[in-house]
Amino acid sequence: MRLGLICDGQTGQRASELLAGALQPHGAEMTLFSGTPPQDSALGWLPLEPLAAAANPLLFGFDAVGVFLEGEALAQVPRIHRQAATLHQQQPVTLFSGPMRPLYGDALSADLLARLDYDLLCLQGDMQVQHLQWLLRGTDYEQKPSIAIGLWCLPTHPVGHRPSQQPLLVVLDQPQIPASPLTNAVLYERLCNAARESPSWLIRLQPDGPLAADPTADPSTWPETSLCWHHHQDRKPPANLQLGQADELAWSVAQASACLGLGSDWLLPAVIWGKPTLVLGDYGIRTELNGPLFFSSGLMQRLVDCLPLHEKIPALPAANPDWLDAIGWAVADGPQRLLLKLQDQQP
């Protein structure tokens, strides 16, 4: 099959490149339409922005096109493509799309509702499938085709890095979450205490996304809602509390002895790579912290119950396997399932 992927933004680009990489070994011929070239130079790439790609007659040469965008362009692409098809007297190609992050609850509803104009929805696991059925029951969209293809949007393949020699706790810092600088300040203070209480451990504050559009930007311009900003402001941080680089995220997680976060997507690769993982439960289940996704994970703990690290981290409970299966880990043949479904969708 010849498949195109229209994407933009860091999340869309990463997800599309992962999907292309997963589909290629199964015989799909992949082309990315994006403003930024893919990391894998062997991947077909056309430097077209999303709306220009949607109107481009090149699209009629594909069997199907995946669209992984955020914002208004997501709704505009199907409209533009169908209009272009009318003008060119062509059949529109099958357009597919789906959540580019592991979402659940209100965030998943909002994400899915914005994609109802697409011909096929790519979901991750049974939790999302059931949510979609619940959300659309009795509506005009009840029969919307969908397919669960696993945790396709995150790196889950084994990685080659060895864990750090010194015990390393990677704290996944979401630059905009929690949304209050003061909350981040208190959490930072607690992590400093944790570092002092466990001098044999290294604690790395690892941003799970860019802290600034320009990677060389002065750290004082980083968001005050990031732990990294607070570390930068601290004149005497503990010696065993250090900063990770945004572009070393995957490497950092792979190197970790354990991972901690509030609701970062990167907690899932950590779980899958077998890292003891801790979802900070001090704030309870809160929608804005991705709490609904981790509610049944079995990984939530209060920070105070995990200290000192050398005693408590080895005793952390493993992830609830039913939850892990339901969020998509049980789907082992996602790329094949998508290709088969797209073949079924062909006019």
């Binding site: 609850g105 209100d106 309870g284 289940i285 809160r286 929608t287 709490g291 609904p292 509610f295």
Partner: peptide, 8 residues
């Protein structure tokens, strides 16, 4: 909205 929170 916020059904999970409400149940929690």
């Amino acid at each position: 909205e916020r059904f999970e929170e409400a149940i929690a």
